[in-house]
Design a protein around this nucleic acid. Structure first.
Lengths: 189, 189
DNA sequence: ATAAAACGTAGACTTTTGTCATCGTTCATG
DNA sequence: CATGAACGATGACAAAAGTCTACGTTTTAT
């Protein structure tokens, strides 16, 4: 399982990056069930997770306590509440597993050590941050400019796996659509 | 005017950072009118701008060619299409001045040089990226969970200056609301 | 200074999205 | 494997947001 992480990193840093094993050894392997809470808003986010298998949901609550999903992250990607993780401030978001998952977690201390002692690791961090940012920008532009129906079409085109893999309820919350509305619109395709 | 940039950087890197003057000298001072196009989607984004005075709009077009505004950036902040700037890929967004502005621009080449030769500059970049990311995340969570009326209230609370400073049309597009609807809702406050 | 263009508001109307209640199905868990 | 909870679909209705037209005001460019 660790090889998925190894491959991910070498793909980004070239074939034989220095200290690769040192880096890999600082990650902790975690197996989870579905619906396990990894982060609760208000806590400080202690880990960055690499998802070797499974799926995580990053979400917040609106004023009526409805969940709204900011992001859904699957295999071979990183997930965290980077702003809390980086600053040490309380997280404003929640994270949970959507499926049984296998994760590799690195804590803040170890992450800092790596950033300082392994220059290349810094690049990985920058890539995580850039990828997260790119995703956010894309998502904003999608939200601001598309109707509910068009957002569904967009999801079908760009992340079709999610459509089959996730519950309707979760997809609706990811698209920012009421679940009943989602059900109706989907029927019209 | 350059002192605004100097202060911005020293505030982040401590009182007397090395190479400060070297860094500052790589920026080009630009004075613009209102409505000047700084970046067109499809082009590669060549600059990162520091805004000493004025206001920029980052926007895209939806399928009906309506402008939708992803971000509005004012004094003492950085603005760019970081993803294009970083990767050299064509930009997916447009940038223009909303007001006559004074900017300090650094191009990709100079930026790379600084990143390599001035270690502290790297921190500034990371801060720009993190700030941009934080802003995006906040904006997504706002969009997904708030009604049009609540988004207006949110803007009045968190960026009240924008309400008085910008045209209604622009604010509406920033909030993702039709301009007529915005006009009506505003009247109800 | 002035003509043209853009802007802001308003009313009437349409479309989209949200809410609520219901019902059969599926799924998780003891 | 049984049962209570969660899920997904649907119809009737309500609320929110969008569209179009019109008109007076402000801004911009010449």
């Amino acid at each position: 399982m660790i090889n998925i992480l190894r491959d991910h990193i070498t793909r980004r840093l070239g074939k034989n990056p220095d200290h690769l094993d040192k880096v890999l050894s600082t990650f902790r392997h975690i197996k989870t069930r579905r619906n396990e809470q990894l982060l609760q808003e208000g806590e400080v986010c202690k880990y960055v997770y690499f998802i070797a298998k499974g799926c995580l949901q990053v979400y917040v609550y609106d004023k009526d306590f409805n969940e709204t999903t900011r992001d859904i992250v699957t295999e071979d990607n990183w997930c965290s509440e980077l702003l809390s993780f980086g600053s040490g401030n309380p997280a404003t978001e929640n994270i949970r597993t959507v499926e049984p998952s296998e994760l590799f977690a690195i804590d803040r201390q170890a992450f800092q050590n790596m950033m300082e002692s392994v220059p290349q690791f810094d690049k990985v961090y920058k890539q995580i941050l850039e990828a997260s940012y790119a995703n956010s920008v894309y998502r904003i532009n999608t939200f601001v400019s598309l109707s509910a129906l068009d957002r569904i079409k967009w999801l079908m085109e760009y992340r079709p796996m999610l459509m089959t893999r996730l519950s309707s309820k979760l997809i609706a919350s990811y698209l920012g659509i009421n679940k009943d509305v989602y059900s109706r619109l989907k029927a019209k395709l």
